[in-house]
Amino acid sequence: MKGIKPSLYFVPFSLPLYLLSGLTAQVQAQSYHANKTWQVSQTFKPPQRGKLPASAGGSTRGSSCLKGKQLITPLMPPDKLGLTFAQHPTFFWYIPPSQLKTAKFLLLTEDQNIFYETSFTLPNKPGIISFKLPDSAPALAVGKTYHWYLTIACNTQDSSENPTVDGWVERTQPEATLSQALAKANLYKLPTIYAEAGIWHEALTSLVQLRQTEPNNFKAKLDWRQFFKSVGLNAIASEPLIDCCTPKNQPQN
Rank of each mutant, 00 (worst) to 15 (best):
1 M>C: 08
4 I>H: 14
6 P>H: 05
12 P>H: 12
12 P>K: 14
14 S>C: 14
16 P>T: 05
17 L>V: 12
17 L>Q: 06
18 Y>K: 15
24 T>K: 03
26 Q>A: 08
26 Q>L: 14
27 V>F: 01
28 Q>P: 02
28 Q>C: 14
28 Q>L: 00
29 A>L: 00
29 A>H: 12
32 Y>F: 11
34 A>M: 06
36 K>E: 12
36 K>G: 03
43 T>L: 10
48 Q>I: 09
49 R>S: 13
52 L>M: 12
52 L>W: 08
52 L>N: 09
56 A>K: 04
58 G>T: 09
61 R>M: 11
64 S>M: 13
64 S>E: 14
65 C>I: 12
65 C>E: 02
74 P>C: 13
75 L>D: 06
80 K>E: 06
83 L>W: 02
85 F>T: 00
87 Q>E: 11
89 P>T: 00
90 T>M: 14
91 F>C: 05
92 F>L: 09
93 W>C: 08
95 I>D: 03
97 P>L: 00
100 L>Y: 00
100 L>Q: 12
101 K>Q: 14
102 T>L: 13
102 T>Q: 15
102 T>R: 10
108 L>S: 07
109 T>P: 05
112 Q>D: 07
114 I>Q: 05
114 I>E: 00
119 S>G: 07
120 F>E: 03
122 L>P: 01
122 L>H: 04
122 L>Q: 13
125 K>Q: 14
125 K>S: 13
127 G>I: 01
127 G>F: 08
129 I>L: 10
129 I>D: 01
129 I>K: 01
131 F>P: 08
131 F>E: 07
134 P>Q: 04
134 P>S: 14
135 D>V: 11
136 S>M: 04
138 P>E: 09
142 V>P: 10
143 G>C: 11
148 W>K: 04
150 L>Q: 07
152 I>P: 01
154 C>H: 00
155 N>W: 07
155 N>F: 03
157 Q>F: 11
158 D>V: 15
159 S>K: 11
159 S>F: 10
160 S>T: 10
162 N>L: 02
162 N>M: 12
164 T>D: 09
166 D>M: 04
168 W>G: 01
171 R>I: 03
171 R>Y: 12
173 Q>R: 06
175 E>S: 02
178 L>G: 07
179 S>Y: 00
181 A>Y: 03
181 A>I: 03
181 A>K: 01
186 N>L: 13
189 K>M: 15
192 T>L: 12
194 Y>I: 00
196 E>M: 05
196 E>F: 04
198 G>Q: 00
198 G>V: 02
202 E>H: 03
203 A>E: 02
203 A>I: 00
204 L>T: 04
210 L>Y: 11
212 Q>M: 13
214 E>H: 13
217 N>H: 05
218 F>V: 10
218 F>A: 08
221 K>P: 07
221 K>A: 09
223 D>T: 05
223 D>A: 15
226 Q>W: 15
227 F>H: 02
228 F>A: 09
229 K>Q: 12
229 K>C: 09
229 K>W: 13
229 K>N: 05
234 N>W: 11
234 N>I: 11
237 A>N: 15
240 P>W: 07
241 L>D: 02
244 C>I: 08
248 K>S: 10
248 K>H: 08
249 N>W: 06
252 Q>C: 05
252 Q>T: 13
